[in-house]
Design a protein around this nucleic acid. Structure first.
Length: 458
DNA sequence: GGAACTCGCCAC
DNA sequence: AAACGTGGCGAGTTCC
């Protein structure tokens, strides 16, 4: 009961603090947005003209009978590709239809479809991001909303516009969108995020000694990359991409409950650019001065099937040996849910109702991780208001806060934020048994959010 | 003409 | 035994 009371209080205080964040808002450049929308529209028109000129389009158009052709309709495209042209669909949608997503269209290897993909990418930038920024802004300021009552994990969500999915990985989309976002005049934007927050919070539940060791001083992604790709010695210069492939194709998916078949396919095909079936010399991404296929063949992994078997064995070692305590925790946590019908977060929230095994294991970690950020945001907001900072919190993305900083206040503000996020939160919640660390990205004074660069605050 | 659905894609 | 977790949103489509 005391637990639930505290949980309620966190949301109560959280809603009020987030209302301040919403009210403070982010500055955007409306002139820039209008100009870029014009530019993208022109680019789309040109690409469309090229597309309409192609034989592919003419064949498609001739096959459409009743209604008007729409090249942006997945239904019509699917019908043309898989019914009219009778191509083999390489992938299914969630509900069993023939897929027309990016990966599928690329695999079909038709040049005109690449034009279509390029157009769709530009439309996404224009319609989902730039247009919604323009629509939602008032007097050059954006006030995204943050909800605490939507996500079933007790995380936050954001809407009107969603500020938690601004492009960052794709360079072109990142630039188009983030160059619209500015600090107040004379200020600079900062993003402060918790390092490995979900992994650290999961360690607070499972207390796995190897995981805690890895958090304190190890490198799990490097270790697993060495096992998966059979590296005798790890060289950061040569093996950075393999480490990234392991991190995003194996370690994180495994933590979320994925299994070896998906992981093997991801690492080999998506990240390593290797085909299914037998591997030949000269295939895949470059590893130093050899190809990945040559490196793998030399280490007796001569085909996709053998690699998949190999990843299966790595998965067994990962859970049964390396993180055995973690693995045991997952099992007993799942058993506890099956016995009682509910589980709780360290922060006092309850999950009940029908949940899958992965849900039961993932939700409490995701929720409690976000609550560390939320608690910190509430405390930082208190100080901001009490001390009347010119610096303001203007956004929040699950494990990070976005700050509109007066450069003169950096030396005062940053130590306070560091103390709250790394020390005070652990005093408040002693169940946090591992250190919490933060990292910062900083933009130039008067620079846009596209210009953020890592900045050492430690 | 709007509600509710699917598909696809952006983030953590 | 099962098989990657959470969201928002735009466009197209279907249903009432």
């Amino acid at each position: 009961m005391k637990h639930k009371r505290e949980a309620y209080q966190l949301l109560h205080d959280g809603v009020l603090a987030l209302a301040r964040v919403e009210q403070q808002g982010l500055r955007i450049d409306v002139g820039y947005i209008k100009e870029q929308k014009r530019k993208i529209t022109k680019q789309i028109t040109e690409l469309e003209e090229g597309f309409y000129d192609s034989d592919f389009f003419k064949e498609w158009k001739d096959s459409v009978q009743k209604k008007k052709i729409n090249i942006y309709s997945p239904t019509q495209l699917s019908y043309f590709l898989y019914r009219v042209k009778k191509l083999e669909s390489p992938k299914k949608t969630a509900s069993g239809g023939d897929s027309t997503d990016e990966e599928t269209l690329k695999r079909l290897n038709i040049p005109e479809l690449d034009i279509l993909l390029k157009i769709k990418k530009l439309k996404k930038i224009k319609d989902t991001y730039l247009a919604s920024f323009e629509r939602e802004q008032t007097d050059g300021y954006l006030h995204p909303f943050y909800n605490l009552h939507i996500a079933r994990t007790y995380r936050s969500s954001s809407d009107r516009p969603n500020f938690q999915n601004i492009p960052i990985r794709d360079e072109e989309a990142m630039l188009y969108v983030r160059q619209a976002i500015y600090p107040r005049p004379g200020h600079q934007l900062w993003e402060i995020d918790y390092s490995q927050l979900e992994v650290r919070i999961s360690a607070c539940y499972n207390k796995d000694p190897q995981l805690i060791h890895d958090i304190l001083e190890g490198d799990m992604h490097r270790d697993m990359a060495m096992e998966i790709f059979k590296l005798k010695k790890y060289d950061p210069k040569l093996h950075k991409t393999l480490r990234a492939a392991t991190k995003n194709g194996f370690v994180f998916p495994q933590f979320y409950g994925d299994y070896y078949k998906n992981c093997a396919e991801n690492m080999a095909c998506t990240w390593g650019e290797l085909p299914k079936g037998r591997w030949k010399s000269g295939q895949g991404i470059q590893v130093g001065n050899v190809c990945l296929s040559d490196h793998m063949i030399e280490n007796d992994i001569k085909s996709y099937m053998i690699f998949e078997k190999h990843v299966q064995e790595i998965e067994r070692m990962f859970w049964q040996e390396r993180y055995r305590t973690y693995s045991n925790w997952k099992e007993s946590w799942w058993k506890k849910y099956q016995r009682r019908g509910y589980v709780t977060t360290k922060t006092g929230f309850v999950f009940q109702g029908v949940m899958s095994r992965n849900d039961v294991i993932n939700y409490p970690v995701q929720g409690a991780a976000f609550h560390c950020l939320l608690w910190s945001l509430i405390e930082i907001m208190k100080v901001q208001l009490r001390e009347r900072w010119d610096t303001k919190i203007v956004g929040q993305i699950h494990d990070s806060i976005i700050i509109d900083m007066n450069p003169k206040e950096v030396d005062h503000v940053i130590p306070i934020i560091k103390c709250i996020m790394c020390n005070d939160v652990r005093q408040h919640w002693p169940w946090i048994i591992v250190p919490l660390e933060i990292e910062a990205d900083v933009c130039p004074v008067d620079g846009s959010w596209a210009e953020k660069k890592p900045f050492n605050i430690n």
